[in-house]
Simulated scan of single mutants.
Amino acid sequence: MSRLVASLGMYDHPAQQSANDRIWSEIVRILRKRGVDRMPDVLDRARHVHDLWRDPNLLFGQACGYPLIADDSLALQVIALPIYDMPGFTSSDATHASVLVARANDGRRSLVDYRDTRAAINDPQSNTGMNLFRATLAPIAETSAFFARVVQTGSHRGSIAAIAAGSADIAAIDTVTYATLVRHEPDLTAPLKIVARSPASPTLPFVTSAATGVETIAALRLALQEVMTDPRLAEARASLGLAGIITANFDALAPIHALQQTAIRFGYPNLR
Protein backbone atom coordinates (compact mmCIF):
# COMPACT_ATOMS: atom_id res chain seq x y z
CA MET A 1 0.00 0.00 0.00
CA SER A 2 1.12 3.58 -0.68
CA ARG A 3 2.53 5.64 2.13
CA LEU A 4 0.25 8.38 3.46
CA VAL A 5 1.09 12.06 3.08
CA ALA A 6 0.78 15.11 5.32
CA SER A 7 0.99 18.85 4.78
CA LEU A 8 0.80 22.06 6.77
CA GLY A 9 1.44 24.26 3.77
CA MET A 10 -1.21 26.91 4.32
CA TYR A 11 0.72 28.62 7.12
CA ASP A 12 4.30 27.57 6.51
CA HIS A 13 6.38 30.73 6.26
CA PRO A 14 10.11 29.84 6.25
CA ALA A 15 10.34 31.21 9.79
CA GLN A 16 7.57 28.80 10.86
CA GLN A 17 8.70 25.61 9.18
CA SER A 18 10.63 24.25 12.15
CA ALA A 19 7.52 24.77 14.32
CA ASN A 20 5.31 22.91 11.85
CA ASP A 21 7.87 20.11 11.72
CA ARG A 22 7.91 19.89 15.51
CA ILE A 23 4.10 19.77 15.70
CA TRP A 24 3.92 17.12 13.01
CA SER A 25 6.63 14.94 14.63
CA GLU A 26 4.61 14.86 17.83
CA ILE A 27 1.39 14.01 15.97
CA VAL A 28 3.23 11.12 14.28
CA ARG A 29 4.45 9.84 17.66
CA ILE A 30 0.93 9.94 19.11
CA LEU A 31 -0.67 8.29 16.08
CA ARG A 32 1.87 5.48 16.03
CA LYS A 33 1.07 4.76 19.67
CA ARG A 34 -2.56 4.47 18.61
CA GLY A 35 -1.76 1.98 15.86
CA VAL A 36 -1.97 4.21 12.78
CA ASP A 37 0.42 2.84 10.16
CA ARG A 38 1.97 4.07 6.88
CA MET A 39 2.76 7.36 8.61
CA PRO A 40 4.76 10.01 6.76
CA ASP A 41 7.69 11.09 8.91
CA VAL A 42 7.97 14.49 7.24
CA LEU A 43 5.58 17.06 5.81
CA ASP A 44 5.25 17.21 2.04
CA ARG A 45 6.58 20.56 0.84
CA ALA A 46 7.32 19.42 -2.71
CA ARG A 47 3.74 19.68 -4.01
CA HIS A 48 1.28 22.54 -4.07
CA VAL A 49 -1.43 22.27 -1.44
CA HIS A 50 -4.08 22.16 -4.19
CA ASP A 51 -2.50 18.92 -5.47
CA LEU A 52 -2.27 17.47 -2.00
CA TRP A 53 -5.96 18.13 -1.34
CA ARG A 54 -6.73 15.79 -4.24
CA ASP A 55 -4.40 13.01 -3.11
CA PRO A 56 -6.45 10.07 -1.76
CA ASN A 57 -3.47 9.29 0.50
CA LEU A 58 -3.71 12.61 2.34
CA LEU A 59 -3.73 11.73 6.02
CA PHE A 60 -3.51 15.26 7.36
CA GLY A 61 -3.58 18.71 5.83
CA GLN A 62 -5.06 22.15 6.09
CA ALA A 63 -7.37 23.56 3.44
CA CYS A 64 -9.07 26.80 2.55
CA GLY A 65 -12.75 26.54 3.41
CA TYR A 66 -14.16 28.14 0.26
CA PRO A 67 -13.02 25.41 -2.19
CA LEU A 68 -14.57 22.84 0.13
CA ILE A 69 -18.00 24.42 -0.29
CA ALA A 70 -17.58 25.52 -3.92
CA ASP A 71 -15.81 22.56 -5.54
CA ASP A 72 -17.70 19.27 -5.44
CA SER A 73 -14.70 17.40 -6.83
CA LEU A 74 -12.72 17.86 -3.61
CA ALA A 75 -13.07 14.68 -1.56
CA LEU A 76 -12.00 15.81 1.90
CA GLN A 77 -13.28 15.39 5.43
CA VAL A 78 -13.04 18.13 8.05
CA ILE A 79 -11.27 17.08 11.26
CA ALA A 80 -11.12 20.28 13.29
CA LEU A 81 -10.93 24.06 13.15
CA PRO A 82 -7.86 25.74 14.68
CA ILE A 83 -8.05 28.68 17.07
CA TYR A 84 -5.43 31.39 16.48
CA ASP A 85 -3.98 34.02 18.78
CA MET A 86 -1.80 36.36 16.73
CA PRO A 87 -0.62 39.83 17.78
CA GLY A 88 -3.39 42.24 16.86
CA PHE A 89 -5.68 39.46 15.60
CA THR A 90 -6.92 37.49 18.59
CA SER A 91 -10.08 35.37 18.54
CA SER A 92 -11.45 33.21 21.31
CA ASP A 93 -13.18 30.91 18.85
CA ALA A 94 -12.26 29.21 15.59
CA THR A 95 -12.89 32.24 13.42
CA HIS A 96 -10.70 34.72 11.62
CA ALA A 97 -11.17 37.41 9.02
CA SER A 98 -9.36 39.35 6.33
CA VAL A 99 -7.84 42.78 6.50
CA LEU A 100 -8.27 44.91 3.39
CA VAL A 101 -4.93 46.59 2.88
CA ALA A 102 -3.67 49.34 0.60
CA ARG A 103 -0.67 51.67 0.32
CA ALA A 104 -0.55 53.96 3.32
CA ASN A 105 0.21 57.03 1.21
CA ASP A 106 -2.43 56.57 -1.50
CA GLY A 107 -4.65 59.39 -0.20
CA ARG A 108 -7.81 57.28 0.03
CA ARG A 109 -9.57 57.11 3.38
CA SER A 110 -12.51 54.70 3.14
CA LEU A 111 -13.36 51.53 1.30
CA VAL A 112 -15.73 53.26 -1.10
CA ASP A 113 -12.78 55.38 -2.30
CA TYR A 114 -11.34 52.25 -3.94
CA ARG A 115 -14.09 52.06 -6.55
CA ASP A 116 -12.55 51.80 -10.05
CA THR A 117 -9.11 50.94 -8.67
CA ARG A 118 -7.13 47.71 -9.11
CA ALA A 119 -7.72 44.79 -6.76
CA ALA A 120 -5.34 41.89 -6.17
CA ILE A 121 -6.50 38.40 -5.18
CA ASN A 122 -4.40 35.37 -4.40
CA ASP A 123 -6.84 32.88 -5.95
CA PRO A 124 -10.44 33.04 -7.23
CA GLN A 125 -11.38 30.21 -4.86
CA SER A 126 -9.75 31.71 -1.77
CA ASN A 127 -12.07 32.36 1.14
CA THR A 128 -9.98 35.11 2.72
CA GLY A 129 -8.61 36.55 -0.52
CA MET A 130 -11.84 36.53 -2.54
CA ASN A 131 -14.98 35.39 -0.67
CA LEU A 132 -14.46 37.64 2.37
CA PHE A 133 -13.30 40.46 0.08
CA ARG A 134 -16.54 40.10 -1.90
CA ALA A 135 -18.64 39.93 1.29
CA THR A 136 -17.08 43.17 2.55
CA LEU A 137 -17.69 45.02 -0.72
CA ALA A 138 -21.18 43.68 -1.51
CA PRO A 139 -23.13 46.14 0.69
CA ILE A 140 -21.44 49.14 -0.95
CA ALA A 141 -20.82 47.86 -4.50
CA GLU A 142 -24.19 49.06 -5.87
CA THR A 143 -23.35 47.54 -9.27
CA SER A 144 -21.97 44.17 -10.35
CA ALA A 145 -18.52 45.69 -11.03
CA PHE A 146 -16.66 47.64 -8.34
CA PHE A 147 -13.07 47.56 -9.59
CA ALA A 148 -11.45 48.68 -12.84
CA ARG A 149 -9.41 45.48 -12.83
CA VAL A 150 -8.77 42.40 -10.70
CA VAL A 151 -5.35 40.74 -10.90
CA GLN A 152 -4.49 37.28 -9.62
CA THR A 153 -1.17 37.01 -7.78
CA GLY A 154 -1.05 33.40 -6.57
CA SER A 155 -0.52 34.13 -2.88
CA HIS A 156 -1.39 36.60 -0.14
CA ARG A 157 2.25 37.62 0.00
CA GLY A 158 2.16 38.19 -3.75
CA SER A 159 -0.90 40.44 -3.37
CA ILE A 160 0.88 42.53 -0.72
CA ALA A 161 3.96 42.78 -2.93
CA ALA A 162 1.77 43.91 -5.86
CA ILE A 163 0.30 46.72 -3.75
CA ALA A 164 3.71 47.80 -2.49
CA ALA A 165 5.03 47.79 -6.07
CA GLY A 166 2.12 49.89 -7.32
CA SER A 167 0.67 47.27 -9.66
CA ALA A 168 -2.45 46.85 -7.49
CA ASP A 169 -4.24 49.13 -5.05
CA ILE A 170 -6.09 46.94 -2.54
CA ALA A 171 -6.32 43.30 -1.45
CA ALA A 172 -7.90 41.17 1.26
CA ILE A 173 -5.32 39.32 3.34
CA ASP A 174 -6.02 36.58 5.85
CA THR A 175 -5.32 37.97 9.33
CA VAL A 176 -3.10 35.03 10.33
CA THR A 177 -0.95 35.51 7.25
CA TYR A 178 -0.84 39.27 7.72
CA ALA A 179 0.26 38.99 11.35
CA THR A 180 2.94 36.51 10.32
CA LEU A 181 4.28 38.86 7.65
CA VAL A 182 4.21 41.83 10.03
CA ARG A 183 6.33 39.78 12.41
CA HIS A 184 8.77 38.18 10.00
CA GLU A 185 8.82 40.55 7.01
CA PRO A 186 8.05 43.98 8.45
CA ASP A 187 9.63 45.77 5.50
CA LEU A 188 7.01 44.19 3.23
CA THR A 189 4.03 45.35 5.28
CA ALA A 190 5.41 48.71 6.46
CA PRO A 191 4.14 50.65 3.40
CA LEU A 192 0.57 49.40 3.94
CA LYS A 193 -2.48 50.53 5.87
CA ILE A 194 -5.56 48.57 6.92
CA VAL A 195 -8.60 50.08 5.20
CA ALA A 196 -11.28 47.71 6.52
CA ARG A 197 -11.85 44.30 8.05
CA SER A 198 -14.07 41.63 6.61
CA PRO A 199 -16.83 39.71 8.39
CA ALA A 200 -15.65 36.79 10.50
CA SER A 201 -15.39 33.32 8.98
CA PRO A 202 -14.34 29.83 10.13
CA THR A 203 -10.58 29.34 10.22
CA LEU A 204 -8.83 27.12 7.69
CA PRO A 205 -9.92 23.57 8.62
CA PHE A 206 -7.62 20.67 9.28
CA VAL A 207 -8.66 17.98 6.79
CA THR A 208 -8.07 14.43 5.68
CA SER A 209 -8.92 12.43 2.58
CA ALA A 210 -12.43 11.06 2.14
CA ALA A 211 -10.75 7.63 2.21
CA THR A 212 -9.60 8.04 5.82
CA GLY A 213 -11.48 5.77 8.23
CA VAL A 214 -13.40 6.90 11.29
CA GLU A 215 -10.93 5.32 13.73
CA THR A 216 -8.02 7.20 12.19
CA ILE A 217 -10.01 10.45 12.23
CA ALA A 218 -10.70 9.93 15.92
CA ALA A 219 -6.98 9.35 16.51
CA LEU A 220 -6.12 12.52 14.59
CA ARG A 221 -8.52 14.57 16.70
CA LEU A 222 -7.05 13.19 19.91
CA ALA A 223 -3.52 13.87 18.66
CA LEU A 224 -4.45 17.47 17.83
CA GLN A 225 -5.93 17.96 21.28
CA GLU A 226 -2.72 16.66 22.85
CA VAL A 227 -0.36 18.85 20.82
CA MET A 228 -2.47 21.91 21.63
CA THR A 229 -1.95 21.41 25.37
CA ASP A 230 1.54 19.85 25.56
CA PRO A 231 3.79 22.35 27.40
CA ARG A 232 6.81 21.08 25.45
CA LEU A 233 5.23 22.47 22.27
CA ALA A 234 4.42 25.92 23.65
CA GLU A 235 7.16 27.61 21.61
CA ALA A 236 6.10 25.87 18.40
CA ARG A 237 2.45 26.79 18.94
CA ALA A 238 3.40 30.40 19.65
CA SER A 239 5.38 30.57 16.40
CA LEU A 240 2.26 29.45 14.51
CA GLY A 241 -0.19 31.44 16.63
CA LEU A 242 -2.03 28.26 17.57
CA ALA A 243 -4.15 28.50 20.70
CA GLY A 244 -6.32 25.38 20.39
CA ILE A 245 -8.75 23.48 18.20
CA ILE A 246 -12.46 22.83 17.96
CA THR A 247 -13.47 19.41 16.69
CA ALA A 248 -15.61 19.96 13.61
CA ASN A 249 -17.10 18.45 10.49
CA PHE A 250 -18.14 19.84 7.11
CA ASP A 251 -21.18 21.61 8.62
CA ALA A 252 -18.84 24.02 10.40
CA LEU A 253 -18.14 25.67 7.02
CA ALA A 254 -21.77 26.79 6.58
CA PRO A 255 -20.94 30.45 7.41
CA ILE A 256 -18.64 30.56 4.38
CA HIS A 257 -21.53 29.56 2.13
CA ALA A 258 -23.79 32.07 3.86
CA LEU A 259 -21.36 34.91 3.07
CA GLN A 260 -21.31 33.85 -0.55
CA GLN A 261 -25.10 33.86 -0.72
CA THR A 262 -25.36 37.24 0.97
CA ALA A 263 -23.09 38.78 -1.68
CA ILE A 264 -25.27 37.26 -4.39
CA ARG A 265 -28.39 38.78 -2.81
CA PHE A 266 -26.70 42.18 -2.86
CA GLY A 267 -26.23 41.75 -6.61
CA TYR A 268 -22.47 41.28 -6.37
CA PRO A 269 -21.95 37.59 -7.22
CA ASN A 270 -18.41 37.95 -8.49
CA LEU A 271 -15.48 39.97 -7.22
CA ARG A 272 -14.82 42.42 -10.04
Rank of each mutant, 00 (worst) to 15 (best):
Y11V: 11
A80L: 08
F133G: 09
P82T: 07
Q225R: 14
D116H: 15
I170N: 05
N270H: 15
H48A: 15
E215R: 13
A252S: 12
A248P: 02
A94W: 05
I121H: 00
R34E: 13
L188R: 06
F60C: 06
R232E: 15
A138V: 08
P139T: 01
L100F: 10
L81T: 05
P205D: 09
P67N: 09
N57E: 15
R45L: 03
T95M: 08
D169I: 03
A243Q: 10
R109V: 06
T189H: 03
A46N: 13
F89M: 11
S144R: 14
L4M: 12
S159N: 10
A94Y: 05
N20E: 10
V182D: 13
I170P: 10
R32I: 02
D93Y: 09
T247F: 05
P87H: 00
N105V: 04
L132D: 03
V42Y: 10
Y66T: 00
T153S: 11
A119M: 07
R265V: 04
F206D: 03
I30E: 12
G244W: 04
A223K: 01
D37P: 03
S198L: 02
M130G: 08
H156R: 11
D251N: 12
A252W: 09
D71G: 12
D41V: 08
V42M: 06
N122M: 10
I246D: 14
E226A: 13
D230S: 05
V214H: 13
L137H: 11
A252R: 00
